[in-house]
Design a protein around this nucleic acid. Structure first.
Lengths: 224, 224
DNA sequence: GCGGATCTTGATGAATCCTTGATGCCGCCC
DNA sequence: GGGCGGCATCAAGGATTCATCAAGATCCGC
């Protein structure tokens, strides 16, 4: 499902957008100020962001700049200002599109479609290599000795979390709640089963792992 | 040098744009009607296109659609019309941005920067070959053993997305929302039906696919 | 309208994946 | 040395997902 984060302080517009976007199949999250928007974007990264520049707590361009510091998500900016200086500022801060109020909902939907069309070919060239295997986070692919390794969805989720935090200790609870959900925080069994499978598929000697390490009683750690 | 093709029939605007864009480091080509624009774009493919919808010889949207049939170059549309129906039509025909006259030159420049930022990873091969079949993304054609393969519109859309992202895993949700729209993100049935058809038409052995691979529970992947 | 192509929808067996329990190993403390 | 807790491994079941087929429903050009 395509997730859209709508950031605006006008409750009426918010309501209209939520209804319209839901009716067109988007999964809508809303935020009424900049702080809430950044929190929401960090917690559940959306596929698209609609951002009003006139927010009560902080400048819209500042929100955009902060978001851009860690996310490449396409952003469509809303503004009541027609002045070209504002547009220039927003576009240069990293906005992908700019639309002035008032606007037609069909135009907004068309611009969203155009944005999403472009967002697919954002090749995220993050490649993590060890001397045994290579993980391509963008293409979602693992290779070993030139051969593709086939991972199940659960195996991949676990590996992705570990690989995105190299050398960092990930607790069992972190892994369980990220992969299976917070309700599974005590099912440490799952971790053993899947860690064993990952090692069998990736480690040269699954009995003596060198990259997927166990920290007894605490969690696991990935070493490049 | 970034090449910009400017298509407009107003000689004054053309002159102003040429001077301004050259001053900002762009390499400018101009065309005064649709036919000349398409010829120029075909002969020396530009990095960006600025297209006025009001042309003397043919409808601007038709020019855009024709251009889109073989090129993915970012297009910024100029129009004197403020109506949202026009915008929707242009954006759905493949425009990447839309700006109404009159406009500020600094806004135009900012939008051009935003467009160029998004299209950095060009180098788009229009011809993708495997040892079983060949896909010509520009001409929208698929050949196998020298024979043309007939694809339905839906089959083509699906294949195009996969082929434009070689080796990359495309999730079921990405495929569904690109081909059928975001509201269909749960109809994974469609994917199976059409993937089976694509394999029957393209794979030497549809039962053991080598180029259109299934990642169970996640999505599909194209391997050249 | 009519006919053909294309798109939906449902049903079936096969393949894959997740869960769960049992078993054995290792290190540690009593 | 024996008991214990945490870990690794294995295998089987049940659940989910996939491939395939075929029958309507719908769209489109003539």
């Amino acid at each position: 499902m395509t997730g859209v984060l709508v950031v605006d302080d006008d409750p009426y517009l918010l309501r209209a957008l939520r209804i319209t976007l839901r009716a067109h199949g988007y999964d809508v999250t809303v935020a009424e100020d900049g702080r809430a928007a950044l929190l929401a974007a960090a917690r559940t990264p959306p596929s698209l962001v609609i951002l009003d520049l006139g927010l009560p707590d902080m400048d819209g361009v500042a929100v955009l700049a902060t978001l851009r510091s860690w996310s490449q998500v396409p952003v469509l900016v809303l503004s009541a200002r027609h002045g070209s200086a504002d547009k220039v500022q927003a576009l240069d801060a990293g906005a992908d599109d700019y639309i002035t109020k008032p606007f037609g909902l069909d135009e907004l939907l068309a611009r969203l479609r155009a944005l999403r069309r472009r967002s697919l070919d954002d090749a995220e060239p993050t490649l993590v290599t060890t001397d045994a295997f290579t993980v391509d986070l963008g293409k979602r692919r693992v290779t070993r000795d030139g051969e593709d390794i086939r991972l199940t969805p659960t195996e991949w989720k676990m590996l992705e979390i570990l690989v995105r935090n190299p050398e960092k200790l990930i607790t069992q609870q972190q892994l369980l709640s990220e992969v299976w959900g917070p309700a599974y925080a005590k099912e440490t069994n799952y971790l053993r089963v899947y860690m064993a499978q990952l090692r069998r598929k990736l480690e040269p000697d699954a009995g003596a792992p060198r990259h997927l390490l166990t920290e007894a009683g605490i969690g696991y750690r990935f070493m490049p």
